[in-house]
Design a protein around this nucleic acid. Sequence first.
DNA 1: GTTATTGCAAACAATTTGCATATAA
DNA 2: TTATATGCAAATTGTTTGCAATAAC
Lengths: 141, 141
Amino acid sequence: MQHSSDVLRAAGLRASAGRTAVVELLGRQSCLLTAQEIADQLREQGSAGSTATVYRALETLHELGLVRRFDSDGLARYEPVDPSGEHHHHIVLDPSGDVVPFDDAELERAIVGIGQRLGLVVTSHEVILRGRLIDEPPESD
Amino acid sequence: MQHSSDVLRAAGLRASAGRTAVVELLGRQSCLLTAQEIADQLREQGSAGSTATVYRALETLHELGLVRRFDSDGLARYEPVDPSGEHHHHIVLDPSGDVVPFDDAELERAIVGIGQRLGLVVTSHEVILRGRLIDEPPESD
DNA sequence: GTTATTGCAAACAATTTGCATATAA
DNA sequence: TTATATGCAAATTGTTTGCAATAAC
């Protein structure tokens, strides 16, 4: 929150109503929301929330590294970036489509190793698993 | 190629002109192409390639597990699935936007471990890294 | 001969943009 | 007061769909 405001200022931008509302809403959710969901929730809670403003705010926040964007099924979903560097990845459950966050130290270590092996600085990464709970039957047509 | 044809038949579908052309084109590329790129290349080479057919073929092939789909920047990109189970992941290079394939055994092991730890069958997974080559200066505004 | 597939053009859905107004510094 | 951010509505873009014509089996 304070961090976002600082980063915006440092970029010569304003911590304006729309942007602040988006940051604050995302901070409360901590996991993926679509632009539409954000706009709807903002309007419900009475904050500013035209689609244009929400999309513009998300684009700006993404460029500044304050939110993470994740495209799936032709939709963009967003979540806040924790300034401490904490992050998680996502599993899409098979029959339901529910998205579940997870993190794994070994996975992170493997990714660091890949960067070293290939001679590049990995600035960000995302991992998406799709799967179903054991015991649950596979989808049958 | 033969494999695709078999899988289509097994699903009660036909290995028709459009679908065959898409499979064959993807087989030649082995890495990510958008639907538009596929349609354009098909038309250039004289094969069938209306956008509708390409989209429909890709959807079908994806459902049958013959192609992999990968959403990024609001665009869907596709690549063939190797029937032997071989697969790779992608690095998006930072200044250029070029996409480079890679694979890593340790990464795959970590993913298997995650599935076990969380009690689920991981049916597919994708990993996207973004980074820049060491020595290359970060983007300056 | 039947039934699945194609292509066209129109319909859609998510996102972006122009521009006048409102707002933060 | 001056530059930035907002909202509306219109424009774009990627993708999907209805339907008559066509090709696969």
